[in-house]
Design a protein around this nucleic acid. Structure first.
Length: 1114
RNA sequence: GGGGGAGUAGCUCAGUUGGUUAGAGCAGCCGUCUUAUACACGGCCGGUCCCUGGUUCGAGCCCAGGCUCCCCUACCA
C-alpha cells in the first residue's frame, strides 16, 4: 500500500528528509559502486573559490554540474565526482587582512608571513566546509569531505601545524603532520574535493613553468603597470576588465610656459595630477592643427579641434601651425626644482647622455582631439603608453611611488605622502607657480583593483611573464607550420578549434581573446599563493625555473631542512638556496607568488595525477565536459587551462565547454546586500526549496541572464505543484481502492486509447529528454517535461478521473497501472533535474510495493529503452486532433452560453482527411468530454461543409512566383476547381495533389468552430429531456458543494432529502444519489446542511447530513 | 575606438530552410470545472515585431543605414 500524500506538499522539510534518507542508505556510494565498471564520462569541475559562503549564482552553475553528472550516472557511466576548491591568491588574503584589521603589506610582514599564510589556509578550510554543506543541501552529489573533518583540520592547523594527526581515507587511515595532511587533501589516499593549494597542484605548476622556460618563453619585464597601492601588487591584463568603474577625478588644465617663446604656454590636460611630478615631455600630433590663442593677457597653444571644449570664455586665435612645427620646443616643467627631476634629467637622453635633458615637445601618433587640449602630458614612469613612448625616444624616466603608493624621497614636500591625497597640494603649487589654468570634475571609467576596489595607479615595476608569441599580420589559414610552432597563441587557437563551445559564440570570443591578449603576467608581489619557482641570481643576473620539489631538493645547497615538513608556500620555501648554474653563486627564489589562474588552469593535470599516475590520467583526460559562468572565464579559467594543456600536451583539456550568463536580482540589477535585493543561498534553499530553485535555473536559457527572485520561484513552484497534484490524486485513489501494481493488471495493448496515448507520450518524453540532455540542452529537456506534465494533468487525468473514483474491473486496473507507470516514468526522466521531488515520488510509488526495486530513483537507469515499445506516434497524432476538437467545441459552448453540465443532443464533426486513427474510441472520448449524446461525422458532401483548398506555399511558392497573389485570392474566395485525381485548378494554375490540402470549412451562416480542416458544429437545441438531465447534473454539483461545506471525507456516506424537485428531474435522482454516496430520505429534511438550487425546472431545496455507520435507515 | 549579441503584448520570453491570420507564461478582465474539495482549466483583452530603406510574389526572419541596451575588448592624456 502507498503512503498517504499531503495535498499541499511542504517541500523544504521533505528535502531535508530525503537528504537524511540518502545519508542513511548510502545512496550516492551505491550509485558509484553500481557504475564503477561502466564506460567513463569525465567531468572536470572548475574550482569554486573557498573564500565566502556560496551564493545563489553558484547554485545555478552547480545545478548544471549536478544535472549532467546525475544524467550520465543514469546512463550507467563511471565518473570521478570530484569537486574543486580554489584556495590561493589575493581573494583570500584580502579577507584575512580585513579580519585582522590590516591596511597594508607592512602590517602583514610585521605580523609574520608564516602565521598569515596559516590563517589563509584556515580561512579556505572554513569556507570549503561551509560550501560543502551548502552544496549538499542543493542536492549536489559529489565525493564530499566531511565538513566537520575539514573544520577539525583547520583547528589543528591553528593550534600546531606540526602535530601528527590521523584521518580516514578511502584506502584506510592516513597519518601525517596536520600541515602535510592539509597539503594532501584531494589526493587518492584522502579522497574528497581537490584543493588548489595542494602540494601536487603547486608542484605540477612548477613543472609547467619549467617547461615554458625550457622553450624560452619566461622573461622578466620592466614596464609601467597598473598597480594597486593597497594590495601592493601589479594587476595583469587578465584582471583589468573586471575593475573598470565610473569615478570622479579632477580634470586639471595646466600651463607649460615655452622657454624660447616668452609669454606663450602650452596647455595640457590631465586627470591624474600626481603624474605631473614626473612629467618629461609634452606630445602633439604631428598632423593635427594647433593654434595660438589670446585669452585676456595670456597666450596659449592648443589643438584647433579642442578650442570649444578646452577653453572657457572668449578667446582670439592669433596663429595656426601643424603639430610638426611644435616638435622640439622647450618648455618649463611643472616641478623642475624637485631633486628627483633634477637627478633624472641630469643623465640626459639615450641619444645625448652628455647633456642634461630639458622638457620638450615630441610627436606622438596617439594624440587626438577628443578630450583635453590635444597636447598630452607625458610621464613615462606613470603610464604604460607614456613608458612605451619614453623608451622609444630614450627619454628620462621618473618613477615617483613606492609599492604602497607613497611618494619616494626627492619629491620635496610630497615625499612620504599618499598618492591619493596629493591633488590639493599639487593644485596649490601650480597656482603659486602661475601654471594653473582650470580645474573641473571629470566622470570617467577608470581601472580599480578587482578585489579591494581601490583606484589603480601606474607604476614602473619588474614583473614576470610568459610570452604568448608573435601576432602575425595575416589570417590564420595563411600561416605556415613553422609560424604556428613558434607562437604559443596560435597553438592554443588550434586547440580551441577542436572543442565544442556552447553557446557557439564562445568559440569566437576565445579566439578573439587569444589573438589580442598580451603576454601573461604571472607574478604577484604578495604572500599567499603559488611560490613562483624562479631563481634569479643576484650576481650574474641569469635566472632558472625549477620543475618541482624533487628538483629543488636535488639542487638545494642550504635551507632544505627548513622547508621539510612544510607545504611549498612562503615563507618556508624561500629558505631554500640553490647554486646558480651560470656562476655558481648562491641564488634565492624571487619573492613573488603566482597568478591564481595558474592554480586553476593546472587541474586537468593535477587532479588526474599526470605525473604520479599517467595511466589513470590517460583514462580521464581530456574531460568530456566542463561548465562555468561565461563572464571573465575566457581570459581566466578557460584560458589558463587551454594555455597549460597546449604547452604540456598540445591538445584540448576538455571536449565540450558549456557557458552560462549572469544572475541578477529580480529588479534586473546586480545583487547587493546594501541595495536590499540580495538573496542568500541558505535563505533561498530554506524558503523556496532547492528543487524549485533548480527548476527555475534549468528552465532558463543559459545564454541569457537570469533575474532571480521570489516571484520567479513562485512560477517555478506552480509548475511543480501540478506534478505533485497528479501524484497526490493517484495515491489518494489507489489507497481508497486498494490498488497496487501486480501481474493482474491488464496488458498495455488491452488498455484504452487514452491509456496507451499517455504511455506513448511518456516513451516519447524519455527519448526526447535523453536526446536533449545528451546534447547539454537542459532548457529543451525541461520544456519537454513541462509539456508532458501538462498533458498528463489537463488531458489524461482530467478525462480519466471517473475511472479512478468510480471505475471497476480491468478498466480501473488499467487506469491505475497506466497512471502509475506514467508518473514513475516522469519521475525517472526528471530525476536529474529535481532529485528530491522525484525521489519522494519514486520511493512511494515503487519502493513501497516492490522490495526488489533499487532503493532510489537515482539508482535506476534512464528509462528510454524500457519505454520505447510503448511508443505509438499515430495514436499521438490522432489524440492531438481529438483534443483540438474538444477545445473548439468548448469554445462554442462558451459563446452559446451552454455549460458543459448541460447535455446536448448532437455534435457534428469533420476531420482533416476525413479519418482518425482509432476513430471509434476517440469519438466516444470526445462525446464524453463534451457531454453530448451523439457525435456525427460529416464529410465533404455535408450541407454544413464546403471544401476549401489550402495552397501549401512553401511547396509552390518558388514555382508560382508572381502568380501567387492571384492564386491566393482565388483560393480564399473558393474559386477553385477540384478534379477527380486530386489536382486543383486555381486562377488558371494547375496545382498537384501534393501541393494543396483540401480542408473542410464551414458554410457561411453556421455556428461552428474550425481549425485546419477540423470542424465542429454543436446542436444547441435543448429538449425537455436534455434540460432535465442538465438539472440533475446541476443538482449533483450542488450536493457535492454542500458535502465540501460540511467537511465530509471522500468516502463518507450521507442522508439526503430533496424538496421541490420537478418530476422530470426526479427521474434522475437515483443516479444523483449514487454519485454523491447518498441515501435518499423521502419523508422529511434530515437536518444538517441545507441549500437551495436554482434549476431550469424551478428551485429545489436540499438537506444532507453524514450517515452514521450501520444498516440502512429507511 | 574595435568585435559580438539583443530589441517581438504591461512584464519575462518563444518564433523552424522567408510562407497567408506572429505565439506561450505571468499580470489584468471574464468565465468554467469540480470526489485533484481554492487544486486546476478555458476564454478575452493586449503587438508600428526599434526606425528607415532595399531584395522578394511574400520579410519578425535576408541585406544596408540609423537609434537604444547588454556583453567582450582597448593605450587614451
Amino acid at each position: 500500500m502507498f503512503q498517504p500524500v499531503p495535498p499541499r506538499p511542504d517541500l523544504v522539510p521533505m528535502e531535508h528528509e530525503t537528504l537524511e534518507f540518502w545519508r542513511e542508505r548510502g545512496t550516492f556510494a551505491a550509485l558509484r559502486a553500481q557504475n564503477e565498471r561502466g564506460p567513463k564520462w569525465s567531468f572536470l569541475d572548475g574550482p569554486i573559490t573557498a573564500n565566502n559562503p556560496m551564493g545563489v549564482h553558484h547554485a545555478w552553475g552547480r545545478t548544471y554540474k549536478d544535472l549532467y553528472q546525475r544524467f550520465h550516472a543514469m546512463l550507467g557511466e563511471a565518473q570521478r565526482w570530484q569537486n574543486g576548491f580554489d584556495c590561493q591568491g589575493l581573494w583570500v588574503e584580502v579577507n584575512v587582512e580585513r579580519d585582522l584589521g590590516f591596511t597594508s603589506k607592512r602590517d602583514i610582514e610585521a605580523y609574520g608571513i608564516a602565521q598569515f599564510v596559516s590563517l589563509c589556509k584556515q580561512r579556505v578550510l572554513t569556507y570549503a566546509a561551509r560550501q560543502t554543506e551548502q552544496s549538499i543541501r542543493l542536492g549536489y552529489w559529489m565525493d564530499w569531505n566531511d565538513p566537520d573533518e575539514l573544520r577539525r583540520l583547520r583547528d589543528l592547523l591553528a593550534a600546531d601545524a606540526a602535530q601528527v594527526a590521523t584521518v580516514d581515507g578511502p584506502r584506510g587511515p592516513v597519518t601525517d603532520t596536520v600541515e602535510m595532511i592539509v597539503g594532501r587533501l584531494g589526493m587518492p589516499e584522502l579522497g574528497g574535493s581537490y584543493f588548489t593549494f595542494s602540494n601536487e597542484n603547486n608542484d605540477l605548476i612548477w613543472g609547467f613553468l619549467a617547461e615554458c622556460h625550457r622553450r624560452g618563453w619566461i622573461y622578466k619585464g620592466h614596464d609601467t603597470m597598473p598597480w594597486c597601492a593597497r594590495c601592493g601588487t601589479g594587476i595583469s591584463q587578465h584582471e583589468m576588465t573586471e575593475g573598470y568603474q565610473d569615478r570622479d577625478d579632477p580634470g586639471l588644465t595646466v600651463r607649460f610656459p615655452l622657454v624660447d617663446r616668452p609669454g606663450e604656454s602650452l596647455l595640457i590636460w590631465t586627470t591624474t595630477p600626481w603624474t605631473l611630478t614626473s612629467n618629461v615631455a609634452a606630445a602633439v600630433g604631428a598632423d593635427l592643427r594647433y593654434v595660438r590663442v589670446r585669452v585676456g593677457d595670456d597666450s596659449f597653444w592648443l589643438a584647433k579641434g579642442t578650442l570649444k571644449s578646452a577653453l572657457e570664455g572668449r578667446h582670439e586665435v592669433l596663429e595656426e601651425r601643424p603639430g610638426s612645427d611644435l616638435v622640439g620646443w622647450r618648455y618649463e616643467g611643472p616641478f623642475d626644482d624637485l631633486p628627483a627631476v633634477v637627478e633624472a634629467f641630469a643623465k640626459g637622453t639615450r641619444v645625448h647622455p652628455e647633456a642634461p635633458y630639458e622638457h620638450r615637445v615630441v610627436a606622438w601618433t596617439e594624440v587626438g582631439e577628443e578630450e583635453g587640449t590635444g597636447i598630452v602630458h607625458v610621464a613615462p614612469g606613470c603610464g604604460a603608453e607614456d613608458y612605451a613612448l619614453g623608451t622609444s625616444l630614450g627619454l628620462p624616466i621618473i618613477a615617483p611611488l613606492d609599492e604602497s603608493g607613497i611618494f619616494l624621497d626627492g619629491f620635496g614636500s610630497l615625499s612620504g605622502r599618499d598618492v591619493r591625497d596629493v591633488t590639493d597640494p599639487i593644485v596649490e603649487h601650480l597656482r603659486h607657480a602661475g601654471r594653473f589654468q582650470r580645474l573641473e570634475t571629470i566622470r570617467h571609467r577608470y581601472p580599480h583593483c578587482w578585489r579591494c576596489g581601490t583606484a589603480l595607479v601606474f607604476r614602473l615595476v619588474d614583473e614576470w611573464y610568459i610570452s604568448m608569441g608573435e601576432v602575425y599580420d595575416q589570417p590564420r589559414e595563411a600561416l605556415t607550420r613553422e609560424q604556428v610552432d613558434r607562437s604559443l597563441r596560435y597553438q592554443i587557437m588550434e586547440v580551441v578549434d577542436s572543442i565544442r563551445w556552447i553557446p557557439g559564440f564562445g568559440y569566437e570570443r576565445e579566439l578573439d581573446w587569444l589573438l589580442n591578449m598580451h603576454d601573461w603576467m604571472i607574478s604577484k608581489k604578495r604572500y599567499w599563493g603559488l611560490a613562483l619557482p624562479i631563481y634569479e641570481c643576484a650576481t650574474c643576473g641569469t635566472f632558472d625555473v625549477l620543475g618541482g620539489q624533487e628538483e629543488l631538493r636535488e639542487r638545494a645547497v642550504s635551507g632544505w631542512d627548513r622547508l621539510a615538513g612544510h607545504t611549498p608556500h612562503r615563507p618556508y620555501v624561500d629558505e631554500v638556496v640553490i647554486a646558480c648554474q651560470t656562476c655558481g653563486r648562491e641564488t634565492r627564489r624571487i619573492p613573488d607568488v603566482g597568478n591564481p589562474w595558474l592554480d586553476a588552469g593546472i587541474v586537468p593535470f593535477s587532479t588526474l595525477h599526470y605525473r604520479e599516475e599517467p595511466e589513470y590520467w590517460a583514462q580521464w583526460f581530456p574531460a568530456d565536459f566542463v561548465t562555468e559562468s561565461f563572464p571573465g572565464q575566457f581570459r581566466n579559467w578557460f584560458y589558463a587551462m587551454l594555455a597549460m594543456s597546449t604547452v604540456l600536451r598540445r591538445e584540448a583539456p576538455f571536449k565540450t565547454i558549456f557557458g552560462y550568463a549572469t544572475l541578477f536580482a529580480e529588479d534586473g540589477r546586480a545583487m547587493h546586500k546594501s541595495w536590499g535585493n540580495a538573496i542568500e543561498f541558505d535563505e533561498a534553499a530554506e524558503r523556496m526549496g532547492v528543487d524549485v530553485m533548480r527548476w527555475l535555473y534549468m528552465s532558463s536559457r543559459p545564454d541569457d541572464n537570469i533575474l532571480f527572485g521570489w516571484h520567479a520561484a513562485d512560477d517555478a513552484r506552480r509548475r511543480l505543484l501540478i506534478l505533485w497534484n497528479v501524484y497526490a490524486f493517484f495515491v489518494t485513489y489507489a489507497r481508497l481502492t486498494g490498488w497496487t501494481p501486480g501481474p493482474e493488471d491488464p496488458p498495455v495493448e488491452e488498455r484504452s486509447p487514452m491509456d496507451r496515448w499517455i504511455l506513448s507520450r511518456a516513451a516519447g518524453l524519455a527519448a526526447a529528454a535523453q536526446d536533449r540532455l545528451g546534447d547539454y540542452d537542459a532548457v529543451a529537456a525541461t520544456r519537454l517535461i513541462d509539456t508532458f506534465i501538462d498533458d498528463l494533468s489537463t488531458w489524461y487525468l482530467r478525462l480519466s478521473r471517473k475511472r479512478f473514483s468510480r471505475g471497476s474491473g480491468a478498466d480501473q486496473a488499467g487506469a491505475f497501472a497506466t497512471l502509475h507507470a506514467a508518473i514513475v516514468a516522469l519521475a525517472r526522466v526528471t530525476a536529474p533535474v529535481l532529485p528530491f521531488l522525484t525521489e519522494e515520488i519514486y520511493r512511494n510509488l515503487i519502493v513501497e510495493t516492490d522490495p526488489t526495486a533499487p532503493h532510489s530513483v537515482h539508482l535506476t537507469s534512464y528509462p528510454t529503452a524500457e519505454l520505447s515499445p510503448l511508443r505509438d506516434e499515430a495514436l499521438e497524432a490522432a489524440m492531438a486532433t481529438a483534443r483540438r476538437a474538444v477545445d473548439l467545441a468548448r469554445t462554442l459552448r462558451g459563446t452559446a452560453n451552454l455549460k458543459v453540465r448541460q447535455p446536448l443532443a448532437r455534435l457534428w464533426l469533420a476531420l482533416p482527411g476525413g479519418d482518425l486513427h482509432e476513430l471509434e474510441a476517440l469519438v466516444a472520448l470526445i462525446a464524453e468530454e463534451l457531454n453530448v449524446r451523439h457525435v456525427e461525422l460529416i464529410g465533404d458532401e455535408s450541407s454544413l461543409v464546403e471544401r476549401r483548398v489550402k495552397v501549401l506555399l512553401p511547396k509552390v511558392g518558388r514555382r508560382l512566383g508572381s502568380a501567387i497573389p492571384a492564386v491566393m485570392a482565388a483560393a480564399r474566395d473558393g474559386a477553385v476547381d477540384i478534379r477527380a485525381d486530386g489536382t486543383v485548378v486555381i486562377a488558371g494554375v494547375v496545382l498537384g495533389a501534393d501541393e494543396v490540402e483540401i480542408l473542410a470549412m464551414p458554410r457561411p451562416g453556421t455556428v461552428v468552430a474550425h481549425d485546419e480542416g477540423l470542424l465542429v458544429v454543436l446542436d444547441t437545441e435543448l429538449t425537455p429531456d436534455l434540460r432535465a438531465e442538465g438539472d440533475a447534473r446541476e443538482l449533483q454539483r450542488a450536493i457535492q458543494d454542500l458535502r465540501k461545506d460540511a467537511g465530509l471525507e471522500l468516502d463518507d456516506r450521507i442522508l439526503l432529502h430533496v424538496e421541490g424537485l420537478a418530476r422530470a428531474v426526479a427521474g434522475h435522482l437515483g443516479g444523483v444519489a449514487d454519485e454523491t454516496l447518498a441515501e435518499l430520505v423521502s419523508s422529511s429534511p434530515v437536518g444538517g446542511r441545507r441549500a437551495t438550487v436554482e434549476l431550469e425546472a424551478g428551485p429545489a431545496t436540499i438537506t444532507l447530513a453524514r450517515r452514521p455507520p450501520g444498516p440502512r435507515v429507511s
